[in-house]
Nucleic acid binder design. Structure first.
Lengths: 142, 142
DNA sequence: TATCGGATGAGAATGATTATAAAACGACGC
DNA sequence: GCGTCGTTTTATAATCATTCTCATCCGATA
C-alpha cells in the first residue's frame, strides 16, 4: 500500500484535517513501515526528510490520525504507544513477555457467541482482538 | 475468593517467594479488590493497613507476583500497569476510549482455527484474549 | 497586504515506573 | 539471647514516555 500525496490529501479532506507537509511525511512514514512502530521510531524516520520536525508534532499528529481513524492504536504494548497503519480487518498476536506484535488473520472468533456475553451498550462495531501468548524466542529463553 | 494468610504462605512457598508482611498485605489487597487496579490504587488501599509502606515496594511486589504467575497483568491500558487477581480463565473487554476493563467469559474463540493461524513456535498455553470496543458511556458521549 | 486561526518547534512539566543506596528485618548458627 | 548474612523495605533520585505551554510561523482569506 503506497500512499501518494493525492491519496493523503483526499483522506485528510474526508476527515476534515488540514494537509501540512509534516502531516504528510508522518503519515507516509507510518504507512511505509510495516510493523508496529513507536512514536520515537517514526520521529527518527521522519527526521531524515524533515530534520527540523519536533517530537511533539509527531505525537500530535499520530494522536490526530488515531482519533480520525486513519491509524489504529496498538494498545497492549508495555506502556508505550504503537501505531498500526494496516487498516484491513485483522487481529494482533502479542508476546506477553517481549511485547512484540504480529498481525494475525483468520476467522477464529464466534461473534454471535461473543455478542451474547457483551454487557448491554458495549459497541463492537470495529472489534480488535488481541491474543496473548509467548513468542518462539521468549519461549525458548524461559 | 478470600485468601487467608495460610493460603498466601502456601502460594508463596510454591513459587519460592519469601513471605513478608508487606507482600501479604499487597497480595490480599489485589485479591480483595474486584476490578483491575493500578499500582497507585493498591498503594492507597495497602497504606490503610501498613501506613509506612513505600510505593516502590508495591511495584516491586506486583512485578514479582506477575512474574511468578500469582497475578496477571492487564496490558492494554493506556500506559499504566494494571493487575488482575482473577486467575480463572477469562478474557477482557476493553473500552478503546476510556480503557476500562471488564472481565468476559464464554467460549467464543475457536482455538483450533486460531492455532492454524499461529506462526510456528508461538505458545498459547495460557491464552488471554482482549476484545476492544466502545463501552456504553463512551459511545453515548461521542 | 493585514489579519486570523490553526500548526509547529523548543523546551519545560508531568506522571508512571525503575534504580539506588542505606536502614531494617529475619532466619540461622553459636 | 546475639551477631551475621542475605533479603526486603524505605526514601529518594533518576529515567522515560508523553503532554503542555507558548512564542513563532504559515496559509487562507478579506
Amino acid at each position: 500500500m503506497r500512499f501518494t500525496h493525492e491519496q493523503f490529501r483526499e483522506l485528510a479532506a474526508k476527515h476534515g484535517l488540514a494537509v501540512t507537509h509534516q502531516r504528510q511525511v508522518v503519515f507516509e512514514a507510518v504507512i511505509a513501515s510495516h510493523g508496529h512502530y513507536s512514536p520515537e521510531d517514526i520521529y527518527a524516520a521522519v527526521r531524515r526528510r524533515v530534520p527540523s520536525i519536533s517530537l511533539a508534532t509527531v505525537y500530535n499528529n499520530l494522536r490526530l490520525f488515531i482519533e480520525c481513524g486513519l491509524l489504529r492504536e496498538v494498545t497492549p504494548h508495555a506502556s508505550t504507544l504503537r501505531v498500526d497503519g494496516n487498516l484491513k480487518p485483522h487481529h494482533h498476536l502479542v508476546c506477553s513477555r517481549c511485547k512484540a506484535v504480529q498481525d494475525i488473520e483468520g476467522d477464529f472468533v464466534d461473534f454471535k457467541r461473543l455478542s451474547r456475553q457483551l454487557p448491554s451498550g458495549f459497541d463492537l462495531t470495529q472489534p480488535l482482538i488481541e491474543v496473548f501468548g509467548l513468542c518462539r524466542r521468549c519461549r525458548a529463553k524461559k
